[in-house]
Amino acid sequence: MTTKRYAALLRGINVGGNKKVPMAQLRPLMEGLGYTDVRTYLQSGNVTFAADGGDEASLERDVAAAVAAEFGFSVDVVVRDHAYLRAVMEACPFPAAALQGKQLHVTYFSAPVSTERFAGIDPAAYAPEDFRLGDRALYLYAPDGLGTSKLGAQLGRPALNKGLIATSRNWNTVVKLVELTDES
């Protein structure tokens, strides 16, 4: 078996005092699943690890089940390998190097999304904010940050994300996850 590096993105933890998952407890929990080189990044549900075998879907189920058993609540989890994370970073349609990390975000989806899902949103109505779809990802340019983004609020509506797990990270985190999962 080949060891691969992954990032598990836990959705909606440690926000406003809800669904508290201390990173100091998450690391040994992941190690207990047999994963190695476990590292967390920030308090917002980013954990990288190495695993022998498995696929993203089985790793997502294992991490979600372990978190539920340990902390007593369910959490949506998206797991992606290094190659995918790097490809998403490299495919960014916005000038990432010229922007601040808080101005650019990636929403990772649990499955592919079509342009039809977002057809009701007119990006021109939100200019200069803008978005583009990628491979199981959505890129959002919000020059004043996500917290005040009207386009971000529209894109995050539950009806648009029905049937999907969707979890967003700012560009600084996108880049850091690529670094932390690098296998070289």
Rank of each mutant, 00 (worst) to 15 (best):
R61T: 10
L155G: 01
P128Q: 12
A68V: 07
Q103D: 08
E56S: 03
D55I: 08
F131W: 12
Q25I: 00
F73Y: 14
V79M: 04
T181Y: 06
N170D: 09
N18I: 08
K162C: 04
A57D: 10
G16S: 11
V175Y: 14
E129P: 04
Q25F: 04
A83I: 09
H82Q: 13
E129V: 06
T48C: 08
L33P: 00
P143F: 13
V113F: 05
K102S: 14
R157H: 13
D52K: 15
F118I: 09
D144R: 15
L133M: 11
V77I: 08
P93Y: 14
L85W: 02
R117M: 11
Y35L: 01
R27Y: 06
A7Q: 00
A166E: 02
G134Q: 09
K102Q: 14
L138R: 07
T167P: 03
L104R: 05
R39D: 04
L155T: 01
D52N: 10
E116M: 12
R11C: 05
P143N: 14
R132N: 07
D52E: 15
M1Y: 08
D182T: 10
Q25G: 00
V78M: 06
V21M: 01
L146A: 15
V38T: 05
Y126T: 07
N170G: 08
A98V: 07
N14P: 05
